[in-house]
Every structure is written in C-alpha cells, then in structure tokens.
Design a binder for these strands. Structure first.
Lengths: 205, 205
DNA sequence: AAAATAGGCTAACATTTGTTAGTACAAAAA
DNA sequence: TTTTTGTACTAACAAATGTTAGCCTATTTT
C-alpha cells in the first residue's frame, strides 16, 4: 500500500488539460523570476516539479529552451497587441492608454513570465538573442511613433518622445514591488492609479 | 629587454591614486552590469583587470564581497541623501524633485554601480541580504512619507502614494535604455525631461 | 645590503552545473 | 495479450566555478 503510494511513474497530470511540459515551463518561470535565470538550476526546477533533473529532458530540449519559450511567448503577445492597436482607429492618446493597460494587465496576471522576459532575456543564446533585441527595439520605436503622432496632431503635449517611452515602459516594471508589498491595493485600483499618473502626464491641459 | 617588458609583477597603478582594489571593484561592476552577477565569473573579471583569477584574492575576500561593496556603496549614498533632504526646509514637491534629480544623476554618472545595486542585490548573502532588504523598504517608506506630507499640505494633488513611489523609482531605471541608445540627447536634457514628466504629474494644476 | 612585504603566478581542489546514456516500468495501442 | 510508447529513474560526465596553497620576484623598509 505504502509502496504503491510511493511509486511515481509520471508527473501527476491529474485531471486538467495542462501538459507536463507546460507545468515545467510554469515552474521554471517562477524560479527564474525568484533567483534569476543563471542562479536557478535544473535540479531546483526538477525539485519543484517533483521529479529528477534528468527527467525534465523528456519534455524540453535544454535549460535555454525554457527561457526561449518564456521570453518569446511574452514578446509575441506584445507584438501582436501592437499590431492590433496600430491598425485601430483610436486616437493616439487612446492607443497609448490601451497599450499601457495591456502592459499593466500582463504584469499583474502573468507576472512571472513577463518579469522573466523583461529581466532575463540577456541570457538567451543566438539566434534568439539578436531576434529578441530586434523585437524590443522595434517595439519601442513603434511605441514612440504613436506618441510622436499624437504630438504632431496636438493631442499630446510637446514632450521628448524617447524620454516618455522610457519612463512609461519602465514604470510598469514597478508593479513588481506591488506584488511584493503586503498591503496591496487591488489590481484594478493599481491600474487606474498608474494610468491616471502616466496618461495625465501626456494630456494637454 | 623583451623579458623585462613582459614581467608584470603587479597591476599597473600608473600614476593615479586609484588602488588596485578599486580598479577590481570598478571592473567587476561593469561586468556585473553587462552579464549579471551570477553569469560574470572571477576569471572574466581577472581577464579585464589583466591578471589571473587567483590574484584577485590578494585584494578582496570573495566574489560576494565585490557585490557587497558595490551595493552598499550605492545604498549608503541614498540613505545619506535621504537624511539630508528630510532635514531640509524645502517644500514637499521640492524635496521630491531633489531626490529625483539625485537618482537621475546617479543613473547617469555612476551607471554601473547603481544599475548593479538595483538589479543584483538579490544575490547578496546574509546578513547583507536582509540588511539591504530593510534599507530598501525603509527608503521607499521615507520617500512615500514625503509625498504623503505633500498631499496633506495640498502641495501635491491627491494620488495614491504607493503607486507614485513605484512609478517614480522605477521610471528612473529606464535611464539604462538611454545609455544603450545610439542617438542620445544630453544627460542634462534627459534630466529635465524626466523631471518635467514626473513632477508635473504631481503638481496641482 | 638585507629583510620584509605585497602581490603576482601555477596548480589544484571540491562543488555545482547542464546534459547524456542506459534501464525499468506504466499506460496506450495493437 | 503483446507490443509500443512515454516517461520516470540512477549513474555518470565534462565543463565551469569560486577558492586555497604554495611559490617566486619586485618593491619597500630597515
């Protein structure tokens, strides 16, 4: 009876639709977030998953593949969102608000992945590394272009566009400290507060 | 003659007042910034310094000591600045502006250290780790208190204080991408742009 | 000039790391 | 039922890492 209990042939899939692979990726993201990519070892990931390190390789190709998956999952979502927003008929200010809300949502609801994607992408190996660098650069340019357009159309007050992009995208990273804080306001409230702070800084009075 | 040239008994101190120890710390900071603390090896640091890895230990106790020095150098400067600002007679808004300018200056002129201190402190070992956690928590609280005071005195518009702190401190981290950008505006211009964006978000109209 | 010190070097170490090979068994397919 | 497949395990490896020991020489002090 006890022996039967201790036999653990495979990872528990229980009932859900989540594959073993996805569980591993999810746990890896949590660990990468907590300790950083380099400091998190395959043995630690395996521990959390409840398996030996070697067993992970039945589901993934390498440690770096885990990082690839996490990073490009996030990056592709952002690129897709950018396309959606660009081709919309919204005003520049509304476009920016839309993107900001998307970022804030991501930081709140997919914290680990987004955080890892943002802080650990430097550890990607080529060709993924240069790919990611391009994707990030391009994203910032497109974001800047939207602001620029708003300034030209006089929807947005005259500011240095590069500085605005830099502030907005990094400010959102601050949600990390909201996660860590013990006395959290709700996610929705945080979103409104951030939007009001960041968007009001753009509006013409 | 050639032999004489190749003998390198010690690190070149050249003429300046910088000790070998300080050179090592400086180079370490650069590498920690570029690759992250865990990914930067003692052998790499030694390479950059122009020496064998083992030789580093004539000047420092351990790799972690390097991180300690870098992190607490920065943290202590911030604590000191906070004390100076708190005990000044400035308005709340002016206090905040003062602190922000200090942060921005730090990010521009002591980039490597500040960046490392901010992103890699998690790799400190105890008791330094908990020490740093306290110092950071305390700093944010004092920063928040200043804003809170400004709100009470109606110098600052009614905003969520925690959100404001989070945005401001993280926005400054964005200066990293200014460093990486090829077409930089001047540091002074960046400072003014950031201040105007962040401080105008606080002002009552 | 002699002695002491500082600080370089080589060699080696114990760990930790990512990863592979080979084996065994449970579930699914035949 | 038999076969095949998926997935876990143990054992092991090579490489990389932080660090120490011991030696040797240039510089400094006496």
């Amino acid at each position: 009876m006890l022996a039967y209990f201790c036999f653990m042939g495979r990872i528990k899939t229980t009932n859900s639709q989540v594959t073993r692979r996805e569980i591993i990726i999810e746990k890896a993201a949590i660990l990468f977030k907590e300790k950083g990519f380099k400091a998190a070892s395959m043995r630690e990931i395996a521990d959390v998953v409840g398996v030996e390190a070697a067993s992970l390789y039945n589901h993934i190709k390498s440690k770096n593949e885990l990082l690839n998956i996490i990073c490009f999952d996030v990056a592709n979502r952002y690129t897709q969102k950018m396309e959606e927003v660009e081709s919309s008929k919204l005003s520049s200010l509304a476009k920016i608000e839309n993107l900001l809300r998307f970022h804030i949502d991501g930081m709140i609801n997919h914290f680990e992945e987004v955080y890892v994607s943002d802080r650990e992408w430097k550890h990607l190996d080529n060709p993924y590394l240069s790919n990611m660098q391009n994707q990030r650069r391009t994203y910032r340019k497109r974001f800047a272009a939207i602001i620029e357009e708003g300034v030209k159309k006089k929807e947005i007050k005259k500011i240095d566009v590069a500085t605005a992009v830099l502030i907005m995208l990094h400010a959102i990273g601050g949600i990390e400290s909201w996660h860590r804080s013990t006395q959290k306001i709700t996610g929705a409230a945080l979103e409104e507060n951030m939007i009001s702070f960041l968007i009001d800084g753009l509006k013409k009075i």
